[in-house]
Design a protein around this nucleic acid. Structure first.
Length: 584
DNA sequence: GCCGTTTTCGGCCCGACTGTTTTCAGTCG
């Protein structure tokens, strides 16, 4: 593992971009840094490796300057320019600039007019009604600022799942290699595939705790030790996520993993059940079996559980409950039944119905996407680039769309056992209606419709736009139905029950968007979808090759919603799928 | 900042929405 993680390089570049933007630097320069940050974050291999090989600078978007800055970070541990700029700009201003509705200009204006350099100071100024007095700002802006600050506060300390998984993987590896460790596993929200987490829990089995605790404390990602003792340690990391490790005696491993993985509710009910059944704590002691330590952070939802943990559930007369279900709902009642539900697994997915290519704002060519889809074992993939009105995403004009569909049809003539579906992600326009005329939509294999504008419209308006799209006979799938961006933007005001009702009536599919910052539908609505008889599609919405793999996050959402393969359209073989899409 | 190869300088990003305003600046996707 590289010493400097790709994420860390990406963060540094992004911070550089933010500061330069605040300072009023040229738009294109700022964008260049942002692009580079995104490119580095999307790399499949450590940038450090590529840098040493001399191939990092060959990637489009990484030019001489940015390459040199990355080099500095890799060799000296910091970027000179970033260090210097940090002196110039108080860190809190970047937080102000990150508020929705506040860009570089307003952040600068607030700073100059009110002298605010942090969220706290801005909040005070807003409460004292000083913001509304400024030129160009009013009561609404002031209220909006207070609301956004509230939102930021609430999500503080929560990170998206992929970041937590990455950190957990590194630290678990380190623990596994510590002396005397028999097994280690991540637990808690990460293991339950919760969408965001506030901490990472690790459980290890070892004869002696001290050397194991010491190994974690000495890890390079660890910033400081919060506490240590009694077989446990809690540390703060440089990535901002606290990590707690519990080291238990080998025979306690299974039950310790159960306790550390389930929600409080799940565990309380589980151990109440044990008492009712007269199962003593001694009856629940199971040491790790051979092979229990193979994968500390499960690679995909539905991965096999450690034997020691399975034994705990079996001893209580239950089938081993998958971590994604351990939320304290009805999973324990369900688990007394002889057969566990057949939850969807990544291997059930036969294709992706929402993918962007370099024809619009994707980074990869159609051929690359097709190649990767085949490698993943898919039978089909739909290329669904943006429609014309989404300018920033280089939305396709009518002519470009037709050209692309011609290209794809020609491609299919050479394909055997694989089908590239023509598609489009068509804008649901702010005033209602769709961005392409009927006859164009009629010509596509898959029409994905979604909202990218007018997020702040009222409930009636937004719901109305979605209902209109659902009623359109050519629309197949509503993508990211609530529009939320985790940690950035709340869902728009939508009456999801009416949307589901309409989707059921018109036979439309709702998406579980697998992007880790969307996960939209969420488990609650995904489950509701099934109750309404609405099928879902688990799509990646990938903008590059690597993100095709994010579909596991969507599968995790579906599992958390108790969905089976038959609830999900892209588990179907092509003929059945085409039938559902009305294209057979 | 990056890129190109009719190149080493000029193009790259644009339309819509929002809140504040009577004509527009700032923000966003």
């Amino acid at each position: 593992m590289a010493a400097v993680h790709n994420m860390e390089i990406s963060w540094a570049l992004r911070e550089l971009a933010d500061i330069l933007e605040f300072l009023g630097e040229d738009f294109f320069k700022v964008r260049a840094y942002r692009r580079a940050a995104k490119i580095i974050a999307g790399l499949e291999r450590p940038a450090e490796e590529l840098y040493r090989q001399g191939t990092l600078g060959k990637i489009p978007g990484i030019g001489r300057n940015i390459l040199a800055k990355i080099g500095e970070l890799l060799t000296k541990g910091e970027m000179e320019k970033l260090k210097a700029l940090r002196q110039e700009v108080p860190a809190g201003i970047l937080e102000i600039m990150a508020l929705p509705g506040i860009g570089p200009r307003r952040a600068r204006f607030l700073y100059e007019q009110l002298g605010v350099t942090s969220l706290e100071e801005l909040e005070r100024a807003a409460r004292e009604k000083k913001v509304r007095a400024l030129k160009g700002m009013g009561v609404k802006t002031e209220m909006e600022i207070l609301r956004s600050i509230e939102l930021v506060r609430r999500r503080q300390g929560e990170v998206l799942l992929p970041l937590a998984r990455e950190l957990a993987r590194e630290l678990a590896e380190c623990v596994r290699e510590a002396p005397g460790v028999l097994a280690v596993s991540v637990a808690g929200g990460v293991r339950r595939w919760q969408e965001t987490v506030g901490e990472i829990l690790l459980v290890a089995a070892a004869k002696g705790a001290e050397p194991v605790l010491g190994a974690l404390a000495a890890h390079k990602r660890v910033r400081e030790v919060a506490w240590q003792g009694n077989g446990g340690i809690r540390v703060q990391t440089w990535w901002g996520v606290p990590v707690e490790l519990r080291v238990v005696k080998p025979e306690e491993y299974g039950v310790a993993l159960v306790k550390a993985t389930g929600s409080e509710e799940h565990c309380a009910r589980l151990f109440a059940l044990a008492r009712r059944k007269g199962v003593s704590p001694e009856d629940l002691l199971f040491p790790p079996a051979a092979g229990d330590a193979t994968q500390p952070v499960p690679e995909f939802p539905g991965a096999p559980l450690p034997q020691a943990e399975q034994e705990v559930y079996r001893r209580l007369g239950l089938w081993p409950v998958p971590p994604e279900l351990r939320e304290g709902g009805e999973e324990l009642e369900a688990a007394v039944r002889p057969e566990p539900p057949r939850l969807i697994e990544p291997g059930d997915i036969k294709g992706d119905l929402h993918v962007h290519s370099d024809w619009s704002d994707g980074a990869s060519s159609i051929l690359q996407l097709v190649q990767r889809a085949k490698e993943k074992g898919y039978r089909y993939i739909a290329i669904t680039d943006h429609s014309r009105s989404l300018g920033v995403a280089r939305g396709l004009s009518l002519e470009r769309l037709e050209e692309q569909h011609r290209f794809i049809r020609e491609l299919n003539e050479k394909e055997k056992d694989f089908r590239v579906l023509t598609g489009v992600e068509v804008e649901i326009l702010p005033r209602g209606g769709l961005d392409f005329p009927e006859e164009v939509l009629a010509g596509a294999d898959v029409v994905v419709a979604s909202i990218h504008s007018g997020f702040r419209q009222d409930r009636e308006t937004i719901t109305g736009r979605l209902l209109e799209a659902i009623k359109n006979e050519h629309v197949d799938i509503i993508a990211h139905p609530t529009g939320r961006l985790l940690g950035e933007r709340e869902a728009y005001a939508v009456d999801m029950e009416r949307v589901l009702e309409a989707a059921a009536k018109y036979g439309k599919i709702l998406e579980i968007n697998s992007s880790p910052d969307r996960l939209d539908l969420d488990p609650h609505y995904a489950r509701l979808a099934r109750q309404y008889g609405v099928k879902v599609a688990i799509n990646s919405d990938a903008h590059d090759l690597r993100r095709l793999d994010e579909v596991v996050y969507g599968v995790a959402v579906a599992r958390r919603a108790w969905l089976s393969p038959e609830d999900v359209v892209n588990t179907m073989d092509l003929p059945d799928l085409l039938k559902i899409l009305g294209r057979s």
